[in-house]
Design a protein around this nucleic acid. Structure first.
Lengths: 232, 232
DNA sequence: CGAATAGTGTCTCTAAGACATTATGCA
DNA sequence: TGCATAATGTCTTAGAGACACTATTCG
């Protein structure tokens, strides 16, 4: 198409989603159980075909809504990468554009029409088993998790995993769950509250069912963290 | 294709390349002048169709070789992002997967069969004029330059812009050209030589045609910079 | 010598890392 | 009172920023 005379092939195009949440201090990903061959009965990342007149992000938003019932304004959605090895799908040539979504307060997953079942699974065992997911979805998941991990360092994206109001300790547990490390509570509190625009204090507190009530914060206007909050 | 019963559309798929070099302390990008409609006579990023049995990176390597004559082992090549708005190409639905290439010692560009002309252009004026490039290539170039700029911060990628042996001052001018800023020579020297594995000193020196001869270095084994070398 | 460029040294200040202590709720 | 969790404070150290000086070549 850079030269009209030449011929070219056409490809099926899908979007696949790496939808991450943190539940009970564990990083989870939304998976579907495949209803049809190939890989029937195996788990995979949710996804679907891009329609003829739809742009890529719209397709990702649509698939996200179909799988979770969430509108596009909740959480965070960004393009991750594309995968197009000729043999990545046994049925033919399929290019997939993967998107990364970060959600707070995940709803119970909705089994979409083309999936036998949808469920949240812990990320760690899936990363440890390269054959746990169908297609090349292990690679896509690996890339998505690494993207999320590195973005937590230099952006305020972690608040996307939190509800509207959250405590500093809850935000810290997000970092710990995504990174798989521990973070010093005192230094973290200093860094987060000392970075302008990262979080905004409210005048409300948690109900201290145990321990001292914690102040509630909201996401601030800053999107970048400078200097970053680096992993060890 | 997550459900075989459903129908799906097919798309043309191209790879487009953001090929960057630094020449005479200026960040340059390789462009082609389009030989055919649409945008005939306008400049664009080089690219071409993905073939039926070829994976994406192979297509990018092939296009890079066609445009520059360089083999894949020279410089750096990574996937940037994909662009697929329905109206991005007036001839129909085309998804493009953009790749970012960083080269040292660029050869004279080779006019590929489908391009009337190929030339290196300074990046800055192209960024300043959103209509300078055909298609959505201004957006792709913007994303590519921003990727290169941010990668210089936390990786040793800048050495990809340098020949095998280079001086610290030459490496510093790479940073200045890509970032469009000035960098303190003394602090830069301390940072670069003090980061293990970033550069390796040789026992050779430049011919001091003017001033004191400078020691020559080679790229070291480190790929990540920790802590990073941040822009101001 | 003077000009030009390379390389090193020093001081300051910001911020991270590693701790202990105090504050505020509940049983 | 004891326990649990939240919040703040202090000391040390690594490293960035801002600077001045010395070194080595050329004409």
């Amino acid at each position: 198409m850079r030269g009209m005379a030449e011929t070219f092939d056409r490809f099926a195009v899908t979007v696949d989603l790496v939808i991450l949440t943190v539940q009970r201090d564990t990083l989870n990903v939304l998976t579907v159980t495949r209803a049809n061959p190939p890989f029937q009965g195996r788990i995979a990342l949710p996804g679907g075909f891009v329609e003829a007149t739809e742009n890529l992000i719209t397709a990702a938003v649509r698939e996200l809504a179909e799988e979770t019932g969430l509108s596009q304004d909740v959480g965070h959605l960004e393009q991750l990468a594309s995968y197009g090895d000729p043999d990545r799908d046994p049925r033919g040539r399929v290019i997939t554009v993967a998107y990364l979504a970060l959600l707070a307060d995940p709803p119970a997953p909705v089994a979409a029409s083309d999936a036998a079942d949808a469920q949240w699974l812990a990320v760690e065992p899936l990363l440890a088993d390269p054959s746990a997911l169908a297609f090349d979805h292990h690679r896509i998941l690996t890339d998505g998790v690494e993207r999320a991990r590195s973005k937590l360092e230099y952006s305020s994206l972690a608040v996307q995993f939190c509800p509207t109001e959250f405590t500093i300790a809850a935000l810290r547990r997000i970092y710990e769950a995504v990174w798989g490390t521990t973070v010093d509570p005192r230094n973290f509190h200093r860094k987060v509250t000392g970075t302008p625009g990262f979080v905004v204090a409210t005048d409300r507190y948690t109900d201290g069912d145990r321990g001292r009530p914690a102040r509630l914060y909201q996401a601030g206007p800053a999107s970048q963290l400078h200097p970053p909050l680096l992993r060890r």
